[in-house]
Design a protein around this nucleic acid. Structure first.
Lengths: 212, 212
DNA sequence: GTCTATACATCGATAGAC
DNA sequence: GTCTATCGATGTATAGAC
């Protein structure tokens, strides 16, 4: 796992202190985002929460967008960690279900984080290449889980992401924190694999059985 | 169709002039939203586009949120109109496909309108009961199309809306204006009806055939 | 690094004259 | 209804002391 701490000299108390403050600011930013919305974060409020004056924040972040970028990275790092901690499943298709459930639970845990990571409606904000790389890392893990279940074609992967995105979107929009649409996950993934069986009949039976 | 103009006295030139100005402001608001994003609408820019000073806008809208509400209503009115203009289809399932395509085309036409109507990420904005009623009217038309195809259970309707929401969400987020995910529509609706056939085997064969 | 102080442009919103 | 003038707040940024 890429770890931002790995590039910090822990033997230097100044560097440790600086990183602790940075983490404190990040935590406060999430708290403010939950209270006032992502766009509603005020740098003056944020500074006061961590016992700083507003201009001092610029010693840690170049701009508000840079703060969003760190939050985006933070969220993706947490998601990658969650994905890597997901135990492997001898049944590859069941492994895809595990993966889908993990992702959807993660989204449902924190609507603000979901919006930042997956909807990204903050005007003008684009993640930096560095933080976007973490998002790609997560995508890669999902790709491997699908490949293990025999799903490798782009159109099929698009189909899968579309189905999962629908669950997340409806759950977040219409029943945030609940489980009205999350409950459809197993059914929808089963529909997906039924479709795979139907469209890939040319696939070798042994390979298809192994993927199942 | 509910028509806002129906409550306006057209014989009164003052009322006519006022409503014309209101419509002019609404049109300018959409133009600005396309240029600067929904949250980026500036009341000063908006006022200057319709030859007014910024405070004068408050004679037409109580607040910026009230403007969003009128835009929300405007979008839903257009969607209901589109849905009502959709020709009936003798094949009920094909009628559902028609409906899905119509909705997805409508979303894809205007990403800003889509965000306002279906994602509603504007901090603090909630549609008024009056404008929300138009959204319900559209939902009702969709419900009838599904019912004609034999889909009446809430869980099945949730499944359908989830699938369509996924298409719209992915299309808007990852290929706005294109058709990468729209192209999955027929496949996904077919998957939906295959699932209906599978889960409702207790249904009378004649009724199922008729619904198809 | 952190502070005080200040500056600028922009925003939504309001008061009050006409 | 429309205006001018103004308010308080925002994000952003800089200068300069310590």
């Amino acid at each position: 796992m890429i770890d931002i701490l790995s590039v910090i000299d822990h033997s230097d108390p100044r560097a440790r202190r600086r990183e602790a403050k940075r983490a404190q600011i990040l935590a406060a930013a999430w708290t403010l985002a939950h209270r006032d919305g992502l766009a509603g974060i005020s740098l003056r409020d944020l500074a006061s929460m961590v016992e700083l004056r507003q201009p001092s924040l610029y010693a840690y972040f170049d701009s508000k967008h840079a703060l969003y970028d760190v939050m985006f990275e933070d969220g993706n790092r947490a998601l990658v960690e969650r994905a890597k901690a997901l135990p492997p499943n001898a049944n590859a298709r069941a492994g895809v279900v595990d993966f889908a459930r993990m992702l959807l639970d993660f989204c449902n845990e924190d609507g603000v984080r979901y919006v930042l990571m997956f909807q990204r409606h903050i005007p003008g904000f684009e993640p930096s290449p560095a933080s976007y790389a973490i998002a790609i890392e997560f995508y890669e893990i999902g790709r491997q889980r699908l490949a293990a279940a025999g799903v490798t074609e782009q159109a099929d992967m698009d189909l899968f992401t579309t189905l999962i995105a629908g669950i997340a979107d409806q759950q977040m929009s219409n029943d945030p924190g609940g489980d009205r649409y999350l409950g459809l996950t197993d059914r929808i993934v089963a529909m997906f694999f039924a479709e795979m069986d139907k469209t890939h009949t040319g696939m070798k039976a042994t390979k298809r059985k192994a993927a199942r």
